[in-house]
Computed example of a mutant assay.
Amino acid sequence: MEERHLGRSGLVVSRLGLGTMTWGQDTEPDEAASQLTAFAEAGGTLVDTADVYSDGLSERILGHLLREVVGRDDFVIATKAAIRPNGRYDASRRHLLSALDASLERLGLEYVDLWQVHAYDPRTPLEETLSALDEAVLSGRTRYVGVSNYAGWQIAKAGAWQRAWPGREPIISAQLEYSLLRRDIEREAVPAALDAGAGLLPWSPLGRGVLTGKYRTGIPAGSRAATSHFAEFVRPYLDEECARIVESVVTAAEGLGASPLGVALAWVRDRPGVAAPIVGARTAAQLKQALLSEQLTLPLEIRSALDDVSDIAPASP
């Protein structure tokens, strides 16, 4: 698998990341082990988790696998904090550093490679949140820092603050939802990240699974949309406009002899500023299908057609 630098930093990651949100909930430990092994065999290095995924069980499973199944040094481990179990955002210095300590304990690691603020907390001064990132690097608990789910102005403000004074840790990543079905971040968030030197880590690059084409004729049993905890997550992308984009992806895939999944992943993977889309598969078989996208580069005419069919209206001044 090819590798890329993450933003304007020296950190090199595989250009496809492995997401672990389902680990411990829809993905059992044995299946997680198969995923991580397949990912490593394909040359993947970036593994993404968070303290709230499966109430911390995702981190525990990952930590166990790093000790017992694969080597920790073979991976770039990324985790996140700022969302409490009750869903409240808390990016205070007190909560963030305590959450990082708890993540390291669950992972069984002395440090993570990338630690990201999971969400913007409007009740905490941004400079306090960023001071926690500085402390995390200074104390050796993480090597690099980033943000997740920040709006454009929030990325710009955080990036400018961190680069305004020597000794502050630069924001090197922005983890945002980005796919053919979710391009609104191109208006402000993507330009802000590029200007700040933060590499994009798109989450849900397959449009919450819809871009695989599995929902074209209904909701299959066993799919995320058929579960009580993910149905509302998928529902916004089951409208007519999204269906039109999905059909274009399917048509492109048929013409290339590829899968719709591969076409959708290749499209977002090669967008400006993208370092690595984060793919969260439920099974190892699904992940292996995603890994095949590494062999696919979209011809210019197909990329242009997909750009056109999924284009967003320009924002007003």
Rank of each mutant, 00 (worst) to 15 (best):
12 V>N: 13
96 L>E: 04
53 Y>N: 00
108 G>W: 05
72 R>I: 10
110 E>P: 06
68 E>K: 15
122 P>V: 08
15 R>Y: 07
19 G>Q: 01
126 L>D: 05
8 R>A: 15
106 R>S: 03
40 A>S: 13
105 E>I: 07
98 S>G: 13
83 I>N: 10
22 T>E: 02
55 D>W: 05
26 D>T: 15
95 H>Y: 15
48 D>K: 10
4 R>E: 06
56 G>Q: 02
127 E>Q: 11
94 R>M: 08
11 L>E: 05
124 T>Q: 08
53 Y>L: 00
69 V>D: 00
60 R>M: 04
39 F>K: 04
2 E>P: 13
121 D>H: 12
35 Q>H: 13
126 L>T: 14
42 A>S: 12
32 A>S: 10
96 L>R: 08
4 R>C: 11
44 G>I: 00
54 S>L: 06
74 D>Q: 09
127 E>S: 11
102 A>V: 11
70 V>W: 02
68 E>D: 14
104 L>R: 12
107 L>H: 07
80 K>T: 02
3 E>G: 12
86 N>F: 04
48 D>V: 11
89 Y>L: 13
19 G>D: 01
41 E>Y: 05
121 D>I: 09
18 L>R: 08
97 L>G: 10
3 E>M: 15
32 A>G: 08
3 E>T: 15
109 L>Q: 06
5 H>T: 15
119 A>C: 10
119 A>I: 08
97 L>M: 13
22 T>S: 13
109 L>S: 01
74 D>V: 06
57 L>R: 15
24 G>E: 01
95 H>T: 12
15 R>Q: 14
59 E>R: 03
11 L>P: 03
115 W>M: 08
75 F>P: 04
76 V>L: 06
101 D>L: 11
33 A>W: 02
30 D>I: 07
50 A>M: 00
76 V>C: 04
124 T>W: 06
69 V>H: 00
60 R>Y: 02
97 L>W: 05
98 S>W: 04
54 S>M: 07
96 L>S: 03
52 V>S: 13
10 G>K: 11
75 F>W: 04
36 L>E: 07
10 G>F: 11
118 H>R: 10
4 R>P: 11
100 L>K: 06
21 M>N: 05
11 L>Y: 08
37 T>S: 06
95 H>W: 10
93 R>P: 05
36 L>Y: 09
35 Q>L: 13
96 L>Q: 04
57 L>H: 09
69 V>Y: 00
8 R>E: 06
25 Q>I: 10
76 V>Y: 01
23 W>S: 06
81 A>W: 08
36 L>V: 14
96 L>W: 03
4 R>V: 15
31 E>I: 03
119 A>R: 09
46 L>G: 00
125 P>V: 08
53 Y>H: 01
84 R>A: 10
87 G>H: 03
61 I>L: 04
46 L>N: 00
50 A>L: 02
94 R>V: 12
40 A>H: 09
93 R>I: 07
117 V>N: 05
15 R>N: 14
103 S>N: 08
69 V>G: 00
69 V>C: 00
101 D>F: 07
102 A>P: 03
102 A>M: 10
88 R>G: 07
121 D>P: 09
86 N>T: 05
26 D>L: 15
20 T>A: 13
106 R>Y: 02
16 L>P: 04
